[in-house]
Design a protein around this nucleic acid. Sequence first.
DNA 1: GCCTCTCGCCGAACATAATTCGGTGACTGC
DNA 2: GCAGTCACCGAATTATGTTCGGCGAGAGGC
Lengths: 158, 158
Amino acid sequence: MGVMDDIDSAIVRELQRDARQTNRDLARRLNIAPSTCLERVRALRARGVITGYRATVDLRALNRPVQALLTVRIRPMNREVIERFKAFLTSLPEVLSIYVVAGGDDFLVHVAVPDVDRLHALLMDQVFKRREVVDCRSSVIYQHVANDIIEALPPAGS
Amino acid sequence: MGVMDDIDSAIVRELQRDARQTNRDLARRLNIAPSTCLERVRALRARGVITGYRATVDLRALNRPVQALLTVRIRPMNREVIERFKAFLTSLPEVLSIYVVAGGDDFLVHVAVPDVDRLHALLMDQVFKRREVVDCRSSVIYQHVANDIIEALPPAGS
DNA sequence: GCCTCTCGCCGAACATAATTCGGTGACTGC
DNA sequence: GCAGTCACCGAATTATGTTCGGCGAGAGGC
């Protein structure tokens, strides 16, 4: 099951780089037959290694040039409150990503908005209105660099 | 140039949901001709609204089930040091995403590793070895929810 | 050591989709 | 009302996805 040979790794790497390249091109790159390539891609999808294919967008083009990270603490800290607050965050269109973290802060929320006014409005009108929120700090993001290609890491020794 | 009508928005939404659906299916969904659809998709790509197409992967399948957020402060705070440290982070395979942020913390780094030992090793052997790092705290991530579909936000009033 | 079973790979044939391009209608500006 | 522009369309062409029968390497039994 969990076998991932070099060809599988290469497929995963290539499809992270460009998910829309044709199966023929992908096969050519890996020096295997298109039918073989197709079979492997489908197996990776079926095994859950590849979870989907998504277009990436330019946040500026979508009128959301300002990004920020919100650090939120909520109380009381129980499963129900966490799930409810997480569902609330998910429903906000401004939210890109939600991290539930250990340590002093409970939530870390990545948001993208048209301008800082809108960021302020988001905090005042939405987040701080919630009774479970006991603290929330926001940090504007100057730069965001995503590692687009995620490789498998070796188990133990390098 | 920056025109984004309802059809463009729908295309962007659909391709974020599934970047590999055929142009025909996409056209059928939007009730337009495949040739028209193709033209619009290419225009969105050319205009930079759509920046790419990527496969998404399961971190567990790639032997990286443990995620954490690193909060790093560096000194001195000048452009050169920041760029050098950012380049260093980019070179680490464990790193998924780098945020350069305002406020007390300078960097926030999202990492995914095989286990907590490896997280500890990353901090001790790589991050703390750097002279510009004056402080680094790590928080294990219990849950990470990404909003897969990013919509454009309206300019002013809702 | 040989036989056989299994499994992944291959390539040709077929089905489906991408892409091109000339034509058409709507809207704009004059 | 006339001409120019632009997006859209559909059919024809080109390219790709997908299936399937067979082949060969490697494993395991005897």
